[in-house]
Design a protein around this nucleic acid. Structure first.
Lengths: 337, 337
DNA sequence: AAGATCTGGGTTAACGATTACCCAGACTGT
DNA sequence: ACAGTCTGGGTAATCGTTAACCCAGATCTT
């Protein structure tokens, strides 16, 4: 039950004033080498860490950045959080991750509490697309960076993942291999990313006159639904020879269905996923998929935030990161060709 | 760039003093209905949210709980974080998740910063087992709850996941099905959980005189290593008819290897995992595995923390949650029997 | 009817750290 | 030798909120 050690404790032990301790530890003001050494020693001995609340209240920096994500269980968000934590760490910042469970009210509270007095800056992943909410964000004094916000435009810096190009490339890849019937298992309704992926699939197949509505199945990003939807596709009178799933999990479900039918991937059926989660490269055969440059995105988000913290003007910046196709082992030319 | 609205702004608008606003909003002290209504209205109009830093500094509660985890990418920690966030939310608390990347120094910093002035309480998942570090934790004034700490004993409340029983049950399950050669793919060296799982496997096979060191392969919890290790096992002169993997990811890798050999799960080879990650129930065939009662554990951890926050004596509490076998579709009697 | 009690709200101080400002002594230059 | 500069460090004020006290007027006692 030891009370936390304060700056006064350190000052007492070092035989100086609290101000001198503060100056020493923050490298501000003039301090002699002797005193500096004494202070640092005392701080170390006591295990002193400045109280962030006090620091923040005084207007100084906390070096804490808050990240608000819808949830953490889907590998995508987990990966974004991890990449951001690493980027933050190498920028000398700490990252605290807060989840909203996709509850707009909770998102508002989190943002208010964090920007009000805990964090130096905020990174919002897929913020709720509510004009009023976004307006509040825009007026906030604490720097905010958006990740993958696609709705109502704002002038907040926004780092976006562009699903379209990757999805288009993936579909084209299958077409180029010789597939003429490529099935698509969609993502969740209402997700802008899901919408983009479907649009790209439609465009790519349409360009070659190979668009068949029967080959498009609804989905929800889950593995289970991937399994079912793939079954539906395989049960078609004229089944596809390749399946493009809107997420890796869905693709794994689809692969399960293919194997369950006694067919082989990729010899009988090619499968492509989307996201490049960790399991994609580790499964066997390794999944051909589309990768969001999550690391680059998180790096950029943190660079923008650091910039804003340092007073740079970052308003209006929009960084679009194209997704890219990663060809592994689950795609091959169709049997017939 | 609106400056955050402070309690003084609300006071001014409502025509009262700051203290009255504080009392009203915190339901402390006597306030007339009239005044109360005016204050609440003003606060709402201004969108006032108390500055957590100031509040915390004054010694009042932040309603923020910090959770420190090694990382977030492995589904296990992601799930623990999610369950804790839900439990926190229903206890009226917010949960901020911080990662350490398994860096002890970073863990110490995080804990110091959080307990020093950000969070009301802390939940530490798998804390570094350093006596000195643990001593600091034990002296901390802010309540701390440990999750799955197995090393140096402390009197901090500790909610533990017991891997042993579940792993023993899993092995016995395979043995009861008639398997006489059960392979084991271990977890990462140095993980106490990995050690317990191996110990249980050894005990369970040993009890029936079926322990064969050749059937034990090193692993590291990854899918890739599961694939390789399973190959090694299948290449044995007298290969196992069942494989018990120390994690679900490893089990998936093993299943890949089995299928890659043209064998079927569970007809030719049974596979059991450990953790019951989301993909376990969604894959096909659905994975037989061992589940940690993560939700119960997180609930308990938060209950303990809330209790401590409310002044209850929770020191010394140790809750051991047994892991339990979940039989799904990847286990069956061996071919020969 | 005069003290006691209650009501509703204000005053003051404090939390821990930082910043702006100040000052004593040592050193410089001419 | 005396004003100016530099060095090293201290004092006071401040951030936003709340707990501990206090007090004026209304209401209640007997």
């Amino acid at each position: 039950m030891t009370a936390p050690v304060t700056i006064a404790d350190v000052a007492r032990l070092a035989g100086v004033s609290a101000v001198t301790v503060s100056k020493t530890l923050n490298n501000t003001g003039r301090i002699s080498e002797q005193t500096r050494a004494r202070v640092i020693q005392a701080a170390r001995d006591l295990g002193y860490v400045a109280n962030p609340a006090a620091r923040r209240l005084r207007g100084a920096r906390t070096n804490l950045v808050g990240m608000v994500v819808p949830e953490l269980v889907s590998p995508y968000f987990a990966e974004v959080a991890r990449a951001a934590a690493e980027a933050a760490s190498s920028a000398g910042l700490d990252l605290g991750v807060f989840t909203t469970s996709r509850d707009p009210a909770r998102e508002r509270e989190r943002v208010a509490a964090l920007s009000g007095g805990l964090a130096d800056g905020l990174i919002l992943v897929v913020p709720t697309d509510d004009p009023q909410h976004l307006d509040v964000l825009q007026r906030s004094r604490t720097p905010i960076v958006l990740i993958s916000h696609f709705g109502t435009p704002t002038d907040l810096p926004n780092v976006r993942a562009d699903s379209y190009h990757g999805a288009h490339a993936a579909t084209t890849h299958l077409l180029d291999l010789g597939h003429r019937r490529v099935g698509f298992i969609a993502g969740a309704d209402g997700s802008s990313q899901a919408h983009e992926r479907l649009r790209a699939y439609r465009d790519a197949t349409g360009e070659r006159g190979l668009l068949d509505p029967d080959l498009i199945r609804p989905g929800n990003f889950t593995q289970r639904r991937g399994f079912e939807a793939a079954r539906e596709l395989l049960d078609l009178p004229d089944p596809p020879t390749a399946i493009f799933a809107a997420s890796d999990a869905t693709a794994f479900g689809a692969m399960d269905a293919v194997k369950d039918r006694g067919l082989r991937v990729p010899q009988d059926i090619s499968v492509v996923g989307f996201d490049d989660i960790a399991a994609a490269s580790q499964s066997h055969p390794a999944l051909t998929t589309v990768r969001h440059p999550i690391h680059d995105m998180s790096d950029s988000a943190l660079r923008l935030l650091s910039g804003a913290l340092a007073g740079e003007a970052v308003r209006g910046t929009v960084l679009d990161y194209p997704s890219e196709l990663v060809v592994r082992e689950t795609t091959a030319p169709p049997r017939s060709s």
